[in-house]
């Protein structure tokens, strides 16, 4: 059962990932990414992290990707010109080849390392929200607070960067 779910959503994730990367229209890419992220959320549940899965859907797909869509609309980003970039064939192929090689290498590493290892049965502690929250507010309190600060900074930065430029002519961002 679990295997079936895994296989289905794995294929889905891979396929939509390819679409993200390959499609000309950025809107379609964004939507594909949504699909990928939702599949990943399923995996998170399978792996005993339901809270994270929920967060993924809420924040990532619900907020971040929506932001992406807003910006795409705002900037009226068009499809990439139909003509492929001139003179970049080598780099393209090299990049794809590199990616494949990289994946293979990583796979090799993983295979050598973890072949035959199985998961232990899930423990209560791992899954429960309570343990996550208590760890967050005890051991990881400092990073938590700092992340809060980071978000504040990000808000300010984004606001400043994106506002209309001051009245004087010829100012650079």
């Amino acid at each position: 059962m679990e295997v079936a779910i895994f296989v289905i959503f794995a294929l889905l994730a891979l396929a939509s990932a390819v679409v993200v990367v390959a499609h000309r229209n950025p809107v379609y890419s964004t939507i594909s990414l949504v699909v990928t992220l939702v599949s990943l959320a399923v995996f998170f549940i399978l792996l005993g992290a339901p809270f994270i899965a929920a967060l993924q859907i809420l924040i990532y797909t619900g907020a971040i990707l929506v932001l992406f869509l807003f910006v795409i609309m705002l900037l009226n980003v068009s499809e990439e010109a139909t003509h492929p970039e001139s003179g970049r064939r080598i780099q393209r192929w090299l990049a794809i080849l590199g990616a494949v090689t990289f994946a293979l290498l990583l796979g090799l590493g993983v295979w050598n390392g973890y072949r035959g290892t199985d998961f232990a049965p899930m423990s209560e502690e791992l899954v429960s929200l309570k343990s996550l929250a208590s760890a967050l507010f005890s051991e990881y309190l400092l990073p938590f607070e700092i992340v809060g600060l980071l978000l504040l900074v990000a808000i300010i930065a984004a606001t400043v960067l994106a506002r209309k430029p001051p009245r004087e002519e010829g100012s650079t961002p």
Partner: peptide, 15 residues
């Protein structure tokens, strides 16, 4: 790209 290729080489060497 060059950076990436370098990483590949490194990984190759490690794995």
């Amino acid at each position: 790209l060059y950076l990436f290729l370098g990483i590949i080489i490194l990984f190759w060497w490690v794995f």
